[in-house]
């Protein structure tokens, strides 16, 4: 088990290094450097040189990469020129919105998808199955920003239960903060839940055809109990895989959703940074997103081992 964990951890770290190389290279290839972006197109060559010297841009590529990495390791992501504050502070400020948003969406999509998939599988071929899967089909097909607009119209404009957008900040209290995140997280969660529900259903149907389900039924266990005790845990393995993969899409989805709802999150930060060519911020956020995807997939690997005893010894 420790060997399994250690191996996964090393793979995760290696992935992070490769990702950092890719991000760094992309930034190198883009025309113009940070000094030029800061001073604008009309800056004098002397001023540019001075700033480059000051920012260490004259050093060889390898040194700059190593410096950047050394900075990342101690939490120094560099300094944003548009906000003229450390990138790490910007990220920290925005993460308190994005992190709860992503978590809420993840929990919500799982909480919707698994029961729906289970229910549809248990009633395979009946009306309930057709309705659930029809709804899932719509959920897969409709983009999340459209859901977002629909939700805003119904719950904010029409029913006036929640605000239509913006974020009051956690200093305003827990409930107002959560309230502002409800609609965005629902909009993020629904398309994910639709995919996950379909995966759950097909995984359940496959498991329900297995011999050990018949063994359990031959013991006298009623269908419902067999479904929960024997089928669900076995069906969780493909579901966990998809859940891990979906997390990356969830993060990408926050960029759109945060813009729709005017949430001051990481998605909006990176969006604004791109439009303003604040590349240091983009680099920092991207590396952070990569790291979080790696961490989530590490957790998924751990969950596999919890669900399936066969994986505990193999690695």
């Amino acid at each position: 088990m420790t060997a399994f964990l250690l191996k996964r951890l090393l793979i995760g770290l290696a992935t992070l290094v490769v990702a950092s190389l890719v991000v760094f290279t992309v930034m190198e290839i883009l025309p113009g450097d940070a000094a030029m972006l800061m001073l604008g197109m009309n800056a004098s060559p002397a001023a540019l040189d001075a700033l480059r010297e000051q920012m260490g841009l004259n050093q060889p590529v390898i040194m700059r990469y190593l410096n950047w990495m050394a900075g990342l390791a101690v939490g120094d992501f560099g300094r944003s020129f548009t906000y003229s504050s450390p990138v790490i502070d910007l990220i920290a400020e925005r993460a308190v919105v994005s992190l709860p948003l992503a978590l809420m969406a993840l929990v919500m999509s799982t909480a919707i998808a698994i029961p729906v998939g289970l229910f549809a599988a248990a009633r395979r071929g009946k009306t309930a199955d057709a309705v659930a899967m029809g709804a899932a089909q719509i959920g897969v097909a409709v983009p999340n920003f459209w859901f977002a607009l629909l939700l805003v119209y119904v719950f904010a404009v029409w029913l006036r239960w929640v605000p239509a957008g913006g974020f009051p900040g956690w200093s305003a209290g827990l409930w107002p903060g959560l309230k502002a995140l409800i609609l965005p997280s629902v909009a993020l969660a629904l398309p994910q839940a639709a995919i996950l529900a379909r995966v759950t259903r097909s995984a359940m149907l496959e498991v329900l055809g297995e011999d050990y389900i018949r063994t359990a039924r031959a013991k006298g266990m009623p269908r419902r109990i067999v479904l929960w005790r024997h089928a669900l845990r076995n069906a969780m393995i493909p579901v966990l895989t998809i859940l891990g993969l979906q997390f990356a899409f969830l993060l990408a989805g926050t960029i759109i959703i945060e813009n729709v709802f005017y949430l001051p999150g990481l998605g909006r930060l990176v969006f604004q940074a791109i439009t303003q060519r604040d590349l240091i911020v983009v680099e920092g956020v991207v590396i952070l997103l990569v790291a979080s995807v790696i961490v989530v997939n590490l957790l998924v690997d751990l969950a596999y081992a919890l669900v399936d005893p066969r994986l505990r010894i193999r690695a």
């Binding site: 011999d211 050990y212 018949r214 845990r233 669900v307 399936d308």
Partner: peptide, 10 residues
């Protein structure tokens, strides 16, 4: 088929 008649996770 004894190889598949038992639930692998229990």
């Amino acid at each position: 088929e004894p190889m598949t008649a038992l639930n692998p996770v229990k």
